[in-house]
Design a binder for these strands. Structure first.
Lengths: 341, 341
DNA sequence: TTTAGCACTCGACTCGAAAGAGTGCTAACG
DNA sequence: CGTTAGCACTCTTTCGAGTCGAGTGCTAAA
């Protein structure tokens, strides 16, 4: 357990270091308003905090820097529950007002906004279809060989996929199949679609439709195929403004990682709902062991609609970012809820 | 007009500099196989080439570097029409074989492949819908307030957009409208959709359908709205491997630019079909005045289907990239042609 | 016209000295 | 006993001088 003074000093060091990116010395802390003790006292406390593993020294005769453990303590116990600045609220409002018309792009634009507001990198995951239920689906024939499947999920997410039509299949037959499937599949979770197709639908369908086996097969491919959720990335270049990545090689390592959307989608996969903070080596991926990732899920009736993520250096404005993510994820959830009513 | 020897020297300098990123000295050229004259002779020629503005010297006592004008001459007159290596052909084949099933993502994946094959940054533009014609469109109602419009263009491109349903409109009415519109609008270029809706459709529709004015309005918004073509970016981090961008600030400038998709879409807009090379300051955007952009359009019956772009430092493997783009753009065009038959 | 020779230029690298920031320790103080 | 002043010490950063080496331009000879 830390004393009040130790907590105060740790807070000061984190705050200072986040701002300046330079090791924090005892003198600069003693000069803060509200500090009544001398640099020497602070040095003693700092030595104690270092022994506890909360601080580190880049080298003798440098100031102190928070360790990962230090950041963790800060986030868990010291953080000031950051409200969102009035200006940011205004920007968010303005943004949604403008972008609501192009609903398809709204999540992508949210990513852009996040990176602009925070000056960090934002990574946003769209809904993972596989975990939602099918609400409605429809086929629109394109030509002899292909059709577009439009899929609507219970969360109001719409997606289309082109699929091949087996040689010589009648369009009318397809229509019948789709009609029947909508009855059977509405409300079925995607991860069960495959088995439902096999167990319940196949036989009945076979009575009405020729060659239904072939039709079911292509439908399976386009409907039930597991796909990674869409990944929206924005502000990756913001990483380059951080002094910890002034070395191009380090920066390249991270930016390369950021281009692998599959890896990102795994990285953001939340353990649970709400806000999560992963500091430095707490992140599974080695390339971002110098970074912290803060994520927030937004959901509707317990169904996960997506994840907002902010990636920055471990030396990051945790309070501000957490506040913003909390605010924005609630906003987005509310927006989607209102939309599908 | 350059002498054969001058052309040979310029070629050697460009090739060497592209490989090494270091100013090329007379000595290193004279050592090349096939070179029969001494460094002194080459120095004389180099001085002449510099006077012509084709070469530059970073400072006295350094070797020579091609100027933008030098690259231009190289691209226009000296380039060896680069074939595509067998290995690359194999990779492209393998790639298409694998990705054809997920047709929706094929262009995006093509971008990824381009950046991986070239180690440069690839920027790919999807089809500009506004220049194609409408082939078919359909509405799928989502709930009381909204529907999805599926739009199919003559080039086989499919797109969906959510649109609001005006309060209290009958779904059956909507169906009628869509049916009628498909007759009227099929084959109409998108840039004329708006006027056709007004001039030809409006009156006739009014006879059958109540409140058709409101319906037409929302349709206009979702159908005829001009949207920038989709921009696919891949391999932006490759920029960081180039020694000319080892300075983080320069790199940041470029990466920032690369995040503005609207600007990119403008930048890639081709003057004409085929391959285009823009060297250094020939590019409109100041941030990439140290870069070259090579673009190739792929089209079908004269309709532009998209643009492949490779962005790299001016010190770029022009021959190889041009060859690859030529090959891939033809391939893509053929693929699309085969698909819509 | 080509080439050898040579003085010259200029960036890159190395080294050491000086400056400066911050510490840890000790001893004194209230 | 906690707090503080004082001080020696450590380590990085910065700067300039010196050296090295690559490459040039010029001149004179082949």
């Amino acid at each position: 357990m830390l004393s009040d003074r130790q907590r105060m000093i740790l807070t000061a060091i984190v705050d200072d270091y986040v701002r300046s990116a330079e090791p924090v010395g005892s003198r600069s802390i003693s000069k803060r308003s509200g500090v009544t003790f001398s640099p020497a006292t602070i040095r003693n406390e700092m030595a104690d905090l270092e022994e506890l593993g909360l601080l580190e020294q880049p080298h003798t005769s440098a100031g102190r820097v928070p360790s990962n453990k230090g950041y963790r303590y800060y986030v868990d116990h010291l953080i000031t529950p950051g409200g969102v600045s009035e200006e940011d609220v205004r920007k968010v409002r303005a943004f949604f007002a403008e972008k609501m018309l192009l609903w398809e792009d709204v999540i992508g634009h949210a990513a852009t906004m996040l990176s602009q507001l925070t000056h960090y990198t934002s990574i946003v995951l769209g809904p993972e279809m596989f975990q939602t239920t099918l609400k409605h689906f429809q086929l629109v024939p394109l030509n002899e060989q292909s059709a577009v499947a439009i899929i609507v999920t219970s969360t109001g997410h719409v997606e289309h996929r082109t699929m091949p039509i087996p040689e010589g299949i009648d369009v009318a037959d397809l229509g019948k199949v789709v009609h029947l499937l909508n009855d059977k599949l509405a409300g079925v979770p995607f991860h069960r679609v495959k088995s439902v197709l096999h167990s319940e639908v196949a036989e009945e369908l076979a009575r009405y439709v020729d060659r239904c086996q072939e039709i079911l097969e292509v439908l399976e491919d386009s409907l039930a195929e597991k796909k990674d959720p869409r990944v929206y990335l924005s502000g990756a270049a913001n990483m380059l403004t951080q002094p910890e990545f002034k070395d191009v090689d380090k920066a390249k390592l991270i930016l390369d990682t950021l281009e692998e959307t599959a890896a990102l989608s795994k990285l953001l996969q939340p353990d649970s709902g709400g806000i999560q903070v992963r500091i430095g080596t707490e992140n599974a991926m080695e390339a971002i062991n110098q970074c912290s990732l803060i994520t927030a899920t937004f959901s509707l009736d317990g169904q996960n609609l997506g994840t907002l993520g902010i990636l920055g250096p471990t030396r990051m404005e945790y309070g501000k970012v957490i506040g913003l993510l909390e605010y924005l994820s609630n906003d987005l959830a509310a927006l989607i809820a209102r939309r599908i009513k």
